[in-house]
Design a protein around this nucleic acid. Structure first.
Lengths: 332, 332
DNA sequence: ATCGCTATATAAAACGTTTTAAATTGAAAT
DNA sequence: ATTTCAATTTAAAACGTTTTATATAGCGAT
């Protein structure tokens, strides 16, 4: 059976109160008493009951994290980093995987509340008209939450994300500076924040260079491998200098399409992705891409969340973190 | 503030006991009373306090999962599947990432115990002489645990894993049947269960075909991309018909080495990996590999764990699940 | 002796549930 | 009218902690 504080107290011949105080290193307990209690606790491998503690203290030392899809390595990295950061401050992390369904997100948030999380980090789904009642519920329960990577409209909680615009700007600028004029961009639905911001970066690079792009060069599609492949097949008829995509999976589709058509990368066409997924540097044609500063995002997100948990004044901001361009073999 | 059962009871004008009974659909409560309670609960968005419940009931509806490394997509898949399965039975999952350190594993197990998990699933680290006292501790607390993917020596708890031997056997057999005679295998340290089983499959295929392999064809190295690359550079001097590896990252290293040396795959040399990571079908040369039946592994693991939690007799077995060969462009 | 301190220890209440044994009600059977 | 029984409700204890207000002991100063 699991040993309880009461038992420890009995063995140490003190009251439960004293045992508790000793375990928590409170100053009022006599040094010898403390020593005795701690020794017995260690000897019997005492492990405080989290439920009892959480119940009486009204806090859990837990924060909840909701991501959309863990099979996407970008989110695996996020989970990994959050886990580390949360550890560091003596908390633990509860994970929810929404599968891009708001109702599932909702279910997890309820579970989090059940478990007395002190705050929630949310990577929003990409659903059309999500039911976000759970977020209002969090508000009314005074449980702080922050958005990470993207945000739902209509909330003034902070959002911490990469400066996607800046990243796309950098890579397109880089290509333009190396003499490329006709750069196709394969993107997702323009209404998604993800796409919009990146497109803005593309536009900015062109404007700044005093060049102009043509609207046919912007290909809107589902941002996955297969659609990247098919989009690339269309692109090559137009013989662009480069093809940039808003994520690495799209870029992998492009790479494959070009290989299947004996088009050399980067000799004939340069290709760039976005995200810097762990394995894209290991491809046969290591991919030039924009790294999202995942570790920084997680650090900052947790920092902002904790400051809210600790009742600091609400900074209702968006925090844009700096991307890092990674030039590899697929460009220039 | 969070609404409590006491409050619900007050609003419904019944005792807390009745409210509790009603919420849990116990038969002794009058239909109308139940209805009244449930309505109020829904109206006020009542969410039972998990800590209180767990404390009084001595069970948590939680199981703990320990993996080694979430940046490895194989384990991401594992997490994903476990999460789904655990959901299905109304439980929730606590995640620990050991980073292949037994002490970290230990820390997570302690946390799990703190949180009253009912059982633990362990993907063992690959440490040399791990301190496994936490597992004995679990035993003495009567908290069941099972191994997944691999197992520590000296424990008779069940282990659920892919039949790695069979998988390697299949792919090597396949290559031999297509006329390949000289097949190099790049593997990890032979003492690791992971490597040993796969090597046995390789041997079996050769024996069964009445052919013989040479010990120089077995290259032991660190099983990652860079070492795969370097190992491949050595291999090609010997002009093998095929190179097989014990995981997909190794195979990616091989692919890159061959491309850099203008060796065509599969025309000049066939290449096969192991694991079927999500993206290997998307490579420029889609990789032939052995898929581990991750979903089945997770299902079976949870099933075995739950049967132990529910006190069924202990099946002290290893469960080998069937791998699936995926032939793509990189072979034949 | 008494008082006033300080240092330390403790009893008891509290957290939000579940469960058990007992209480209450009402109707049917005598 | 009383008894019996079933259906329903409830009070109270319990789970393992933390915290607060109070108790106790020891000691130096009066």
């Amino acid at each position: 059976m699991r040993i309880t504080l009461k038992e420890i107290a009995r063995l140490a011949d003190v009251s439960v109160a004293t045992a508790s105080l000793a375990m928590n290193n409170r100053p009022t307990v006599n040094a010898e008493t403390r020593k005795k209690v701690l020794e017995i606790a260690r000897k019997y491998n005492y492990n405080p009951n989290h439920s009892a503690r959480s119940l009486i203290m009204g806090k859990s030392n837990c924060i909840g994290l909701i991501i959309t899809d863990i099979s996407n390595p970008f989110f695996s990295m996020l989970v990994d980093e959050f886990n580390k950061e949360v550890e560091k401050i003596g908390y633990s992390m509860l994970l929810g995987i929404s599968g891009d369904k708001a109702t599932t997100e909702q279910k997890y948030v309820e579970m989090f509340v059940s478990k007395n999380v002190e705050g929630v980090i949310i990577v929003p789904t990409i659903e059309k008209n999500p039911d976000l009642s759970h977020l209002y519920s969090l508000k009314s329960l005074d449980i702080p939450f922050v958005f990470c990577t993207s945000a739902y409209n209509g909330f003034n909680e902070p959002c911490i994300m990469t400066d996607l615009r800046e990243g796309e700007y950098q890579i397109v600028k880089h290509l333009i500076e190396h003499g490329m004029k006709k750069i196709h961009i394969i993107t997702g639905n323009r209404e998604l924040l993800l796409s919009r911001l990146r497109l803005e970066g593309y536009f900015k690079a062109y404007e700044e260079a005093g060049l102009s792009y043509r609207s046919e060069w912007i290909i809107e599609t589902v941002p996955d491998f297969d659609h990247g492949y098919n989009a690339a097949l269309k692109c090559i008829e137009d013989k662009p200098d480069a093809i940039v995509t808003i994520n690495d999976y799209l870029a992998m589709g492009v790479l494959k399409a070009l290989k299947d058509n004996q088009i050399r990368v980067p000799k004939d066409i340069s290709v760039a992705g976005y995200d810097d997924l762990l394995f894209v540097s290991l491809l046969e044609t290591p991919l030039s891409t924009i790294r999202q500063p995942v570790a920084d995002i997680c650090k900052k997100t947790l920092e902002v969340l904790m400051s809210r948990i600790n009742g600091d004044e609400k900074p209702e901001e968006i925090f844009y973190l700096e991307p890092v361009m990674k030039i590899r073999d697929s460009t220039i």
